[in-house]
Design a protein around this nucleic acid. Structure first.
Lengths: 169, 169
DNA sequence: AACGGTTCTTGAATCATTCAAGAAAGTGCG
DNA sequence: CGCACTTTCTTGAATGATTCAAGAACCGTT
C-alpha cells in the first residue's frame, strides 16, 4: 500500500524513532483495516518474523498516541486498529459476525460535535457506531452460517477467529 | 426510586422470573446510573447481603437481553449499566476521570440512523459517544487532581476506584 | 565511535469475565 | 398446598487479552 520509506517518514514526522517493529506494525495496520491485535501481530510477523507480542502492543499504543493509527473498540469486542485517521469517519458493526465497515459522517463535517446539552463537558470528539447486520448475515442465501441469524435484542458482536469460544472481555 | 413491587412487575412483564438477586440488581442499577459491574455488585449487596458476583453477572446479562437495562462500554473502559432504556439517548465520557453523563439525541429523534453509505448493512441502532473533559477536570480550581489534566491525544478514560492501578481491558 | 535514553525480548502477573456442577428457588399444575 | 420441572444461584476454578518488570538491543545524537 505504501513503500516502506513512507512508513519511516510517517514515524519521523511524528517524532517517533524508526524501528523495524514500528514499520512492520504500521504496514500491517495499513494492510488490514479494522484488524484486532492478534491479527496485527500475525501480519507484522509476515514482515518481521519474530516481533514479540509485547512489542506490538507497545507500538500500537505509541502509534495511537501519535495519531498514526486509531483504536476502535465496539462495545464488548476486542480492540481493533485502523490507519485511516484524521477524517472523523465512523463505523458500522455487524451484530452477528462482528465485521466492521467505514461510514463517512452522515451529518456533514465535524458533525454531531454539538450535543443537545453537554452538561458542561468540553467535547472534542463524537464517535458514532452503527449497529446492524452485514449483507452476508442479513440475507442468508445458503446455509453458511447455520445458527447465528437471530439478531439478539441486545446482542454483542461475536468473535471471528475462534470456533467454539466467543468469550469477550 | 421505585418501590420493590415495581421492579417485580418489570421483571414479570419481561417474562423473567422474579428472584431476589434480580430485584436487587435492577434496583441497584436504577440507583446508580452508569455504574460498573463492581459497583452494581456492591449496591446489590446493600439489599441482599450475599449475592454472588456470578449471580450479578448472570442477572445483568438477563436484564440486558430483556431490555430492562442497557449495557454501555466506552472504548477501553469497563462495562457499565444504566436503567434508562428505550429512548435512544447518548453519552459524554470524560477522558480524564471516566465520568459519564447522558445526552439527548442532538439530531432529532431516531437520528443518525441514516448512515451516508451503509455498505448494505441493515442498521438498527446508532450509538453516539462524545469524548471530552467533564467540568471538574477541565477547570481545575484547586489541586485536587494533581497530574491528570493533560488530555492525551487519544487518551482513554481512567479508572475510578483503584488508586495506583488503572489497567483496563 | 561511544553515550544515553528509548524500545524490544522474555517471561510472568493481573483481573474482569466466564465456565462448570451441584444446590436452591420460582412457576405451573394436580 | 405440595410436586415436579426448569431456571437461577452458589461456590470455586479457569480463561485470556492486556499489562508489568528487568535486562538486552537499538536509535539518534554529541
Amino acid at each position: 500500500m505504501h513503500p516502506p520509506a513512507d512508513y519511516e517518514q510517517m514515524l519521523r514526522e511524528s517524532d517517533l524513532r524508526v524501528t523495524r517493529p514500528r514499520v512492520a506494525v504500521l504496514a500491517a495496520v495499513h494492510r488490514h483495516p479494522h484488524a484486532d491485535t492478534e491479527t496485527v501481530i500475525a501480519a507484522a510477523r509476515e514482515d518481521l518474523d519474530d516481533v514479540s507480542h509485547q512489542a506490538v502492543y507497545d507500538v500500537l499504543r505509541a502509534l495511537t498516541a501519535a495519531g498514526l493509527v486509531r483504536r476502535i473498540q465496539p462495545s464488548g469486542a476486542l480492540a481493533r486498529y485502523e490507519a485511516r485517521v484524521g477524517d472523523n469517519h465512523h463505523h458500522v458493526v455487524c451484530r452477528s459476525c462482528g465485521t466492521i465497515a467505514d461510514v463517512d459522517c452522515a451529518v456533514g463535517h465535524v458533525p454531531c460535535l454539538t450535543a443537545s446539552d453537554d452538561h458542561g463537558f468540553t467535547i472534542d470528539e463524537a464517535e458514532v457506531v452503527y449497529w446492524g447486520l452485514c449483507p452476508a448475515c442479513s440475507n442468508p442465501p445458503d446455509q453458511h452460517h447455520p445458527d447465528q441469524h437471530q439478531p439478539a435484542r441486545q446482542g454483542q458482536p461475536v468473535g471471528r477467529k475462534r470456533e467454539t469460544d466467543d468469550r469477550q472481555q
